[in-house]
Amino acid sequence: MSETPQLGQVGPAFPETQSLTENQPSPPVKQPKKKEAKPASLWRDAWYDLRRRPMFIFSLVLIAILLVMSFWPSLFTSINPFDAKTCELSTARQGPSAGHIFGRDNLGCDVYAKTIYGAKNSIIIGVATTVITALVGGLLGLLAGTRGGWTDVLTSRVTEVFFAIPSILGALLITATFRDAGIGIWIVVIALSVLAWPMTFRIMRAAVITARSQDFVLAAKALGAGQARIMFRHLLPNALAPVIVVATINLGGFIAAEAALSFLGVGVQSPDISWGLMIADARNRFLEAPLPLVFPALFLSITVLAFIMLGDAVRDALDPKLR
């Protein structure tokens, strides 16, 4: 559309409309449009709302820092913890010093560098698991909610089976069984995804069922929309909000779960680095040297918090009733 502002035309200048008494074309109603040139929608409104939330900005900044940390850790530290020469056993559990601000761990390695490098695995596991669960659970939920009938019954029963598995136990079982498969941290991603997709499924399914009963779906059908079009153009966009919200909140949970699995010895394996692994290594000498445990734990908490805060802010912004 031509963006040239034909201001003269916007008002009552339409010859055909003089007989109309509806309030819409009258000039006063135009006011909000002048201020905000862009039209409003659920997503645009949400974005508009989010930009004004300190919690959202704060969590976004934190996440941005964490992302940079994961992919360019050398920007934050000159020490490469994967290089064994940087560790000195004789300086094990030394307190903070000039070159090693977080001190050294049980093997005399730099805690700060390890913490920085540990971000990568946490972020990859968190993001990958979220994406996989959102795709698998979301698509199946969309299908089950749209089609109903036996598709719904079958998929819903399958998710119930997964719900019955205690998650830590299930993840332990999967990771312990396939730890020799040689796929590194991806075994953690798979284990968490297998156990977590039913939650996304349920949320998507419920949202789709709610959307399905609305008039615009019937109207779309009455105007000749096919099933695929109804599914992806009418149901999906209207059911996406709760899934996105839960996905962001879950992301924090997955990072914490990775730490738990690594702590239990079935997650990320040494010599790879992860916060959970660092916590596990440091716990035996915690009273002597608390710092090698405290710093990765602190980073872990901040990361989880950042994603949960993001999810919270997105949830509030997408729910008009909370505005």
Partner: peptide
């Protein structure tokens, strides 16, 4: 029947707000 709907026989509904998809522009 899908070919008939909308092209040959069309329908309008009582409450146009709920009969329009809220997340897309009218255009």
């Amino acid at each position: 029947r899908t070919q008939v709907r909308g092209q040959r026989i069309a329908m309008i509904f009582q409450d146009a707000l709920s009969a329009l998809n809220p997340v897309f522009t009218v255009g």
